[in-house]
Amino acid sequence: MNITDEKREQSINSILDKGLAAPVSTPGFLRNMLRELGPNVIFRGALSGVLLSVLVAAVYVLMIILYADGLSDQFNYHSLLFLFSPLLFLGLTLSTEVVERMEGNGLYELKMTFRYTARQIAGFRLLVFSLAGVFFAIVGGYSHYAVTEMGYLLQLIALSLSSLFLCTLLIIYAMRRFRAGWWTGATVWAVLSILPMAVNRQAWEELLSHLPPALTLGVAAVSFILFLREIKIITKEVRYADC
């Protein structure tokens, strides 16, 4: 079956009649999505996961505050802060994005064919969750500072934010590339954070405790920019890996 010149001409005329639409920027796209869908649709089914994640994160902070004194000799505060700063973000993404995919039975596939695809909505949610993660990272950093008095608050918060955004970048990249992306990203994060502790706990703690805030804030900023780039790809990219 060949496409005739006449049909090709008709198609070209049809495109020219419609004209060219100005591309929408990523913030504009996200604003449109929020306005047209509303928080109820974007965060559908997320409430229980959000509550659970907040509860787990709150328990973590309380544990640090309540039990740190008694365990201070065994605690590696900087290592733990680095490992657990993305806890709220990980909990929120696990309880929403992974659950959404696991609902399975064709619904996720169907949602990929709508005007706002499941991936675009996930991108929006990840952005919101990363901002929630910042709040948690700051609270986590402060709780370590309050109980240890072993570092400057800025240093702890900078370390906490660098950990958060390195993890968010890893998770979003893995989620975009692989079907089991969250699990892949979370596993890599756990290995990257725990392995140095397992190999040489003291040296790792020493290294983290001496990182200058300028460096860790720089890492956080670069990771956040790359994270935003991933969000942009998710919201704009039609073509994706057939996985």
Binding site: E103, N105, G106, E109, L110, F114, R115
Partner: peptide
């Protein structure tokens, strides 16, 4: 394009 598309997958999911 997705705006002019209606799709019923083989394994139709619902809540």
């Amino acid at each position: 394009y997705r705006g002019i598309l209606g799709y019923l997958p083989q394994d139709f999911g619902f809540y």
